[in-house]
Each structure stands twice: as structure tokens, then as C-alpha cells.
Design a protein around this nucleic acid. Structure first.
Length: 109
DNA sequence: CTCTTGACTGAGG
DNA sequence: GCCTCAGCCAAGA
């Protein structure tokens, strides 16, 4: 399976889909796993097309555990609602116990 | 090809 | 610990 054949966006989606329930990760972690540690911005950029797909974009936050991408969701608190539904505590767009729920693809995969 | 934009990150003050 | 600046890279116009 040559992942090189996949577009950068597709790679991001594949990794995002592998994020376990009740866990979150950062753009940089995904980018690093894809071999593009400096392309964290691209990860988020790619997520623009995540809506409508099976990609749990709500599980992806920035390195601070802040829901920077919530503005790309339909509602104003939809992203937070989804995370809380998975047992992740979120207060004011900030994930609580971020280290506990953090999931690093380059570490687990 | 060049310029702009962006759901980021790390370093410096 | 917070704010600002610069670097990073890919896609779209």
C-alpha cells in the first residue's frame, strides 16, 4: 500500500479516522506522522474538506488543546459538544486534562 | 510561475 | 505565562 500515492489531504483523513474514541491529537502530531512535521498548517487546511466525510475533525486540536477549528463547524459549540460526548472535558474551547486524552499517531502507530 | 491564505508551531521578549 | 514575529508548506487564483 503506497501511501505516497495518496494526496496529502487524503493522508490526513486516514490518520484522523484512526483516532480512538475519547482521544484527541494535534495538527503537528499528524503532520509529523505523515513525514511533514512542518506542515501542521496543511493538516488543518486539509480538514476543510473533512466535513461530510468520516473524519472526526473535532478530535483534532492545536498543540495547546484549544479548539481553534471550532469556527469551521456548523454551530458555535458543536465541536465542544462532540468532544464532551466522548468523555472529554472542554471548557471555553480548552480541553481539560489534555495530556490525558492526547493521542499521538507517531507514537501509537 | 508568483502571490495570498491558512483548523500551526517554536522561539524570543 | 502571555503576546508577537517568523518559518513552515500545500493549494487556489
Amino acid at each position: 500500500m503506497k501511501q505516497e500515492t495518496l494526496n496529502f489531504f487524503d493522508k490526513v483523513f486516514e490518520v484522523a479516522k484512526q483516532i480512538p474514541y475519547g482521544k484527541v491529537t494535534s495538527y503537528g502530531a499528524i503532520a509529523k506522522y505523515l513525514g511533514a512535521a512542518r506542515s501542521a498548517r496543511m493538516v488543518g487546511y486539509a480538514m476543510n474538506g473533512s466535513t461530510g466525510k468520516d473524519v472526526p475533525a473535532h478530535r483534532i486540536v492545536n498543540r495547546k488543546g484549544l479548539l481553534t477549528g471550532k469556527h469551521h463547524f456548523e454551530g458555535t459549540n458543536l465541536m465542544q459538544q462532540l468532544l464532551e460526548s466522548e468523555g472529554i472535558k472542554v471548557i471555553d474551547n480548552q480541553i481539560q486534562d489534555f495530556e490525558t486524552v492526547f493521542w499521538d499517531p507517531s507514537m501509537e502507530l
